[in-house]
C-alpha cells in the first residue's frame, strides 16, 4: 500500500520507491530508503501528506505519496 491508505499515526516501514530515476534519486537522498520508518502525521488538502521519516518531517503531494510503497511495521 501507499501512505495514502495508511492510518494516521500508524508506524510503517518503507519497502520501495517507484517513479522515474530523478524522482527516486531525490527521495532516496532525503532518506526515503527501503527499511526507513515512516508514518503519516497530518493530511492536507488534495491528498497531500505530512510524513514522519525517522526524526524528519516531510510534506509530499498526492502524486509523490503514491510512489511510496509501505508496509505495517511491527516494532
Amino acid at each position: 500500500m501507499t501512505p495514502r491508505e495508511a492510518t494516521t499515526g500508524a508506524a510503517m516501514r518503507l519497502s520501495r520507491v517507484t517513479g522515474d530515476r530523478r524522482h527516486r534519486r531525490r527521495l532516496v537522498e532525503l532518506g526515503f530508503v527501503p527499511g526507513a520508518d515512516v508514518s503519516v502525521i497530518a493530511r492536507g488538502v488534495n491528498g497531500g501528506l505530512i510524513l514522519a521519516l525517522g526524526d524528519a518531517r516531510v510534506a509530499v503531494d498526492a502524486g509523490t505519496a503514491a510512489t511510496l510503497l509501505v508496509e505495517p511495521s511491527h516494532d
Partner: peptide
C-alpha cells in the same frame, strides 16, 4: 520520541479544514 508537539501543531495548521 515519535509524536512531538510540533506534529500536533502541524495537524491543525495543515489540515484540510483549518489549514
Amino acid at each position: 520520541t515519535r509524536t512531538t508537539w510540533s506534529d500536533r501543531v502541524d495537524r491543525v495548521l495543515t489540515s484540510r479544514w483549518s489549514g
